[in-house]
Nucleic acid binder design. Structure first.
Lengths: 376, 376
DNA sequence: TTTGTTAGTTCAGCGGACTAACAAACCTCT
DNA sequence: AGAGGTTTGTTAGTCCGCTGAACTAACAAA
């Protein structure tokens, strides 16, 4: 079944399309252009979108009224005819509150502007809190972040560890003691704002895709920390998977004769790649490079079928750069190249994240941008 | 960038949405219901789609005028109120011509009705033809199939080997000597009908998804023949990949110490799984079961990262049932289960195709149904 | 100053979906 | 049998959003 989702809002359940949806779609289309290509004149927007100048003018009008977009005056260079009035996204007009719940000792958050830049940060130590106490701490953190901005807040985006469904319910996050916890609903009720929740690796993928100079084409972000998880953007959209568990690659067995894993099985990717394990192996070995390259080769071997099957364009490694960039990255790249067809391997880009530790926060903001404005 | 594709037609390049598109979307929405759930009354359709009875009546009117849908009278059971008039898809009102170019010795084709049933078949031996000669043969086969039906033809769907881009240009198909051949354009010009071309494994996935009792949720169809290829339906849509090479899994290296492959590398999946190789190994061994189970285990090991990363729901094996069903399938299933998390592995269904050798033909028809009517 | 060009606005019209209201056809209850 | 209630599908009129055509504004070049 083909899904039609008007930019800006999730599709109404029935699938029917109102004129209102058309309007929101076009509004989002204009915003998209402005986000992606920077300021432009109304006439320019009309040309690139195919809408008439009339429609564009009217839509820009509503966006200016909302404060989302502002007039910037005429451009410097002058051509023949009446000089255009540039309009552009007013990045500071509206803020987004982002939460990153993935570190295991604390909850971090930020105020992010429409350009995806962090304008303020705040965090609270988790101190072992779980279940309802952890939820309460999330609410507190959100409140404190909301108090840190005087601008209207578009919504709250959350990157949470564990499996998160499309409605923002955390189905399973052992670290936080959440099982079927309706995080989005609770936070929405608490704050009265739109709330969007996704798995941290998934938000990282969104962040990298929209603000990390991604090239377009399939993107996979592999997050390496205490655990290992991935997020995938395929055909321009985030992959959720059958049970919302897409990207849960940490407990895929890559070496049946490997180390025992906390999950009960043997040789999970996490036992190979998770930071504690990797650091331990590094400490025990004389050759740092050999350990890293060896790890990269095994990782590459596990990812080659994925890259080949999906014809991915970019593989982004996110985590401690001292471990991931260098021999490990090189080995991953060369191994995947060696193990896939030229059409696929030659085009593949393997790199570390350009957003660093902020990927999840920025990605959570993208979640809100996409959900509320239809921009991504 | 979020893509909006109104059911029925590819999005106009700009991304703008006309009222016309809304109408087509709603028409497709109704057709979808009728295809999926069978006949229904106008009032029923209105309830399930959320459109008003007025709008539904009008839309049904146009579809009846087109002959696509027919009135079926009142249902047997009678409830209170005026009895409804059921309307249903007129499966034989329109035909689709499907071509399967994947066998390496011949080109096969069929006339398919709207219900996905093959109503006539025809084939032509390839006799080593390549390049322009092969293209000419495709045209001939299409003409002959078109002559076999007196009903209006909705379009021509083609499942071709090799890498095929979204516009129906065959980028690379060594067997047929095609490199950058605009197959869809040529056939469209030749016949004057809408033509849609995709990779054979991709059309197979479409066929299995729409008419193979697929469960919904991520689906991967692995086609095993002279070569090995896959097609994936993720989040309800066909995956194309960065260079239209998604599913090209045959030349992913699964065993660096394996057999030499025709492609120049060593231990490609094809050397493990392609029918000629597999039959040869079976002939050389005393234990058929051991060879098949061993092959299944290796295949499972290669696919586990894919299944785990994508959180697939169904894995369908398509090809010679005597090889694929039984020990091989069992070993694939158990290996993947053992190598993935319970959330993922427990939900996975591994099975052989329900459509048998017709998957590609039926899938090519789905390509047309999806492209022309927005049904899938 | 005139001419040509480009930007942005006003206005009438059209397409498509919606609401309201109704006739037809059936049930059920007295 | 007849009255009243229900459900279907149609007709009539309204609203909303986009369009094309025409207009005003503002500039460069000649």
């Amino acid at each position: 079944m083909t899904h039609l989702s008007p930019l800006g809002r999730p599709l109404r359940p029935s699938g029917k399309l109102l004129q209102e949806d058309t309007r929101r779609h076009h509004r989002a289309l204009l915003l998209q252009r402005l986000f992606r290509d920077g300021p432009a004149s109304r006439a320019d927007l009309a040309r690139t979108t195919g809408l008439t100048r009339v429609t564009v003018s009217e839509l820009v009008g509503t966006m200016v009224a909302d404060g989302l977009v502002e007039e910037l005056g005429a451009p410097v260079e002058s051509r023949v005819g009446k000089p255009p009035t540039l309009v552009g996204v007013a990045a500071e007009s509206t803020h987004i509150v982002s939460l990153d719940l993935s570190p295991d000792d604390r909850l971090t958050g930020a105020v992010v502007n429409l350009a995806g830049h962090v304008v303020a940060r705040h965090e609270r130590p988790l101190a072992g809190r779980k279940g309802a106490e952890a939820t309460a701490l999330v609410h507190e953190l959100a409140d404190e972040l909301l108090a840190m901005t005087s601008r209207p807040v578009l919504g709250i985006g959350v990157g949470s560890p564990g499996v998160v469904d499309a409605l923002g319910t955390v189905l399973d996050a052992p670290n936080l003691g959440w099982h079927g916890t309706p995080l989005a609903d609770g936070l929405r009720e608490h704050t009265g704002l739109p709330v969007l929740v996704a798995n941290d690796a998934n938000t990282a993928a969104l962040g990298e895709h929209s603000f990390g100079h991604a090239q377009g084409g399939g993107l996979m972000v592999l997050r390496v920390g205490t655990g290992v998880g991935a997020g995938l953007i395929l055909e321009g959209t985030l992959l959720h998977g059958h049970r919302a568990a897409a990207g849960e690659i940490g407990h895929v067995v890559v070496d049946p004769r490997g180390e025992a894993c906390a999950c009960g099985r043997t040789g999970c990717l996490e036992t190979l790649l998770a930071v504690p394990h990797l650091r331990r192996r590094l400490a025990a070995s004389s050759s740092r490079t050999r350990v890293l390259a060896d790890t990269g080769r095994r990782l590459g071997a596990a990812l080659a079928p994925v890259v080949g099957t999906l014809n991915l364009h970019e593989l982004v490694l996110s985590g401690p750069v001292d471990l991931l960039d260098g021999p490990l990255r090189d080995a991953v790249e060369s191994t995947i190249r060696r193990r896939t067809m030229p059409v696929i391997g030659d085009e593949l880009v393997v790199r570390t994240s350009t957003l660093g530790d902020d990927v999840v926060l920025v990605g959570a903001a993208v979640l809100v941008l996409a959900g509320e404005l239809g921009v991504s």
